[in-house]
Computed example of a mutant assay.
Amino acid sequence: MLKVLFVCVHNSARSQMAEAFLNRLSGEHFEAESAGLEEGVLNPLVVKAMDEIGIDISKNKTDSVFDFYRKGKAFSIVIKVCDEINGQRCPIFPSALHTLSWNIADPADFKGNEEEKLQETRRVRDEIRERVEQLISEYKDYSTSRK
Protein backbone atom coordinates (compact mmCIF):
# COMPACT_ATOMS: atom_id res chain seq x y z
CA MET A 1 0.00 0.00 0.00
CA LEU A 2 1.29 3.43 -0.93
CA LYS A 3 0.73 6.26 1.51
CA VAL A 4 0.03 9.54 -0.25
CA LEU A 5 0.02 13.06 1.19
CA PHE A 6 -1.75 15.87 -0.67
CA VAL A 7 -0.58 19.37 0.31
CA CYS A 8 -2.10 22.76 -0.44
CA VAL A 9 -1.98 26.14 1.26
CA HIS A 10 -4.81 25.82 3.83
CA ASN A 11 -5.95 22.18 3.48
CA SER A 12 -9.37 23.66 2.76
CA ALA A 13 -10.11 22.68 -0.85
CA ARG A 14 -7.81 20.98 -3.36
CA SER A 15 -5.98 18.66 -0.98
CA GLN A 16 -9.24 17.69 0.73
CA MET A 17 -10.82 16.76 -2.61
CA ALA A 18 -7.76 14.78 -3.70
CA GLU A 19 -7.63 12.86 -0.41
CA ALA A 20 -11.33 12.00 -0.64
CA PHE A 21 -11.07 10.83 -4.24
CA LEU A 22 -7.98 8.68 -3.68
CA ASN A 23 -9.44 7.02 -0.59
CA ARG A 24 -12.75 6.43 -2.40
CA LEU A 25 -11.39 5.21 -5.74
CA SER A 26 -8.21 3.29 -4.95
CA GLY A 27 -9.42 0.39 -2.86
CA GLU A 28 -6.63 -1.20 -0.86
CA HIS A 29 -3.76 0.09 -3.01
CA PHE A 30 -3.42 3.57 -1.53
CA GLU A 31 -4.04 5.45 1.69
CA ALA A 32 -4.36 9.22 1.44
CA GLU A 33 -4.08 12.09 3.89
CA SER A 34 -4.02 15.82 3.30
CA ALA A 35 -2.52 18.83 5.01
CA GLY A 36 -1.92 22.54 4.55
CA LEU A 37 1.02 24.88 4.77
CA GLU A 38 -1.08 27.17 6.98
CA GLU A 39 -4.09 26.64 9.22
CA GLY A 40 -7.38 26.83 7.36
CA VAL A 41 -11.07 25.97 7.34
CA LEU A 42 -13.00 23.93 4.81
CA ASN A 43 -14.22 25.90 1.81
CA PRO A 44 -18.05 25.62 1.83
CA LEU A 45 -18.22 25.59 -1.98
CA VAL A 46 -15.83 22.63 -2.06
CA VAL A 47 -17.97 20.81 0.52
CA LYS A 48 -21.02 21.48 -1.68
CA ALA A 49 -19.31 20.42 -4.92
CA MET A 50 -18.16 17.15 -3.36
CA ASP A 51 -21.58 16.51 -1.83
CA GLU A 52 -23.12 16.86 -5.31
CA ILE A 53 -21.27 13.68 -6.32
CA GLY A 54 -21.98 11.80 -3.11
CA ILE A 55 -18.79 12.48 -1.14
CA ASP A 56 -19.29 14.11 2.25
CA ILE A 57 -16.21 15.97 3.50
CA SER A 58 -18.16 18.34 5.75
CA LYS A 59 -16.79 16.76 8.95
CA ASN A 60 -13.15 16.73 7.78
CA LYS A 61 -10.66 18.72 9.79
CA THR A 62 -7.75 20.66 8.39
CA ASP A 63 -4.23 19.53 9.28
CA SER A 64 -0.79 21.13 9.19
CA VAL A 65 1.87 19.57 6.98
CA PHE A 66 4.45 20.71 9.51
CA ASP A 67 2.70 18.72 12.28
CA PHE A 68 2.91 15.64 10.06
CA TYR A 69 6.59 16.36 9.44
CA ARG A 70 7.36 16.84 13.15
CA LYS A 71 5.56 13.58 13.98
CA GLY A 72 7.80 11.79 11.48
CA LYS A 73 4.91 10.56 9.32
CA ALA A 74 6.10 8.59 6.32
CA PHE A 75 4.61 8.91 2.84
CA SER A 76 5.50 7.15 -0.38
CA ILE A 77 4.22 10.01 -2.53
CA VAL A 78 3.81 13.69 -1.68
CA ILE A 79 1.65 15.67 -4.11
CA LYS A 80 1.61 19.45 -3.95
CA VAL A 81 -1.71 20.57 -5.42
CA CYS A 82 -1.00 24.26 -4.84
CA ASP A 83 0.92 26.61 -7.12
CA GLU A 84 4.66 26.21 -7.53
CA ILE A 85 5.66 29.14 -5.30
CA ASN A 86 3.62 27.90 -2.33
CA GLY A 87 4.70 24.33 -3.03
CA GLN A 88 8.29 25.35 -2.38
CA ARG A 89 7.31 25.98 1.27
CA CYS A 90 6.46 22.30 1.76
CA PRO A 91 8.89 20.34 3.96
CA ILE A 92 10.78 17.47 2.39
CA PHE A 93 9.62 14.07 3.58
CA PRO A 94 12.67 11.77 3.44
CA SER A 95 10.44 8.69 3.02
CA ALA A 96 8.83 10.03 -0.16
CA LEU A 97 9.81 8.06 -3.23
CA HIS A 98 8.13 10.66 -5.43
CA THR A 99 7.15 14.30 -4.97
CA LEU A 100 4.75 15.61 -7.60
CA SER A 101 3.42 19.10 -8.33
CA TRP A 102 -0.06 19.37 -9.83
CA ASN A 103 -0.40 23.19 -9.75
CA ILE A 104 -4.21 23.35 -9.55
CA ALA A 105 -6.21 26.60 -9.30
CA ASP A 106 -7.33 27.56 -5.78
CA PRO A 107 -11.13 27.82 -5.34
CA ALA A 108 -10.52 30.50 -2.69
CA ASP A 109 -9.31 32.79 -5.49
CA PHE A 110 -12.35 32.43 -7.76
CA LYS A 111 -14.28 35.61 -8.55
CA GLY A 112 -17.93 36.18 -9.36
CA ASN A 113 -21.23 35.34 -7.72
CA GLU A 114 -21.72 32.13 -5.74
CA GLU A 115 -22.97 30.13 -8.75
CA GLU A 116 -20.00 31.23 -10.89
CA LYS A 117 -17.55 30.30 -8.13
CA LEU A 118 -19.32 26.97 -7.63
CA GLN A 119 -19.06 26.24 -11.35
CA GLU A 120 -15.30 26.86 -11.27
CA THR A 121 -15.03 24.72 -8.13
CA ARG A 122 -16.78 21.88 -9.97
CA ARG A 123 -14.25 22.23 -12.79
CA VAL A 124 -11.37 21.93 -10.29
CA ARG A 125 -13.11 18.97 -8.60
CA ASP A 126 -13.37 17.16 -11.92
CA GLU A 127 -9.74 17.95 -12.80
CA ILE A 128 -8.58 16.57 -9.45
CA ARG A 129 -10.64 13.40 -9.94
CA GLU A 130 -9.02 12.87 -13.37
CA ARG A 131 -5.54 13.36 -11.92
CA VAL A 132 -6.27 10.97 -9.05
CA GLU A 133 -7.54 8.36 -11.50
CA GLN A 134 -4.34 8.80 -13.52
CA LEU A 135 -2.26 8.49 -10.33
CA ILE A 136 -4.01 5.23 -9.47
CA SER A 137 -3.41 3.91 -12.96
CA GLU A 138 0.28 4.87 -12.95
CA TYR A 139 1.14 3.65 -9.45
CA LYS A 140 -1.28 0.75 -8.84
CA ASP A 141 1.21 -1.92 -9.92
CA TYR A 142 3.87 -0.33 -7.76
CA SER A 143 1.55 -0.37 -4.74
CA THR A 144 0.88 -4.09 -5.09
CA SER A 145 4.60 -4.88 -5.38
CA ARG A 146 5.24 -3.13 -2.02
CA LYS A 147 2.83 -5.27 0.03
Rank of each mutant, 00 (worst) to 15 (best):
A35E: 07
S26D: 03
D63Y: 15
I55P: 03
R24H: 13
P91H: 11
L45V: 04
F21C: 02
K48V: 00
P94A: 11
C8Q: 04
L37E: 02
N86Y: 06
G54V: 11
V7D: 04
L97S: 14
K48N: 07
L37N: 03
L97W: 11
S58C: 07
A20T: 05
V47M: 04
K48G: 00
K48M: 05
E84N: 12
K61R: 15
D63K: 15
V41P: 00
S64D: 11
S34G: 04
L45N: 08
I55M: 15
K48W: 00
S64T: 08
R14M: 01
Q16W: 03
V41E: 13
T62G: 09
V4W: 05
M17H: 03
N43G: 02
G54D: 12
G72I: 09
S95W: 06
M17L: 06
P94W: 08
F21G: 02
K59I: 08
L2C: 08
G72W: 05
M1S: 14
K59P: 00
I57R: 12
F30D: 07
K3Y: 01
D83M: 07
A96Y: 07
R14C: 02
N11W: 01
A32C: 06
E31Y: 07
I77E: 08
K73T: 02
H10I: 01
F30Q: 04
G87L: 13
A13V: 01
H10L: 06
G36K: 04
I79K: 11
A18I: 06
S64N: 15
Y69A: 14
E84K: 15
V4R: 06
P94K: 13
S95H: 09
V4E: 02
V81G: 07
S64H: 12
S26E: 07
S64E: 12
G27D: 04
M1W: 02
E52R: 11
M1D: 06
L2G: 05
G36Y: 03
P94F: 09
A35I: 05
D51Q: 15
C8G: 05
I79P: 01
D51S: 15
I55L: 15
L25H: 06
I92A: 08
F21D: 05
A35C: 05
E38T: 00
R70Y: 09
L5G: 03
V41M: 12
G72A: 11
I79C: 12
F75A: 12
N60P: 00
E33N: 09
V65M: 09
S26Q: 04
A96T: 11
G40L: 05
H29L: 15
Y69W: 15
I57V: 13
L37Q: 02
N60D: 12
I92V: 14
N86I: 03
A18M: 08
K73V: 03
A13Y: 00
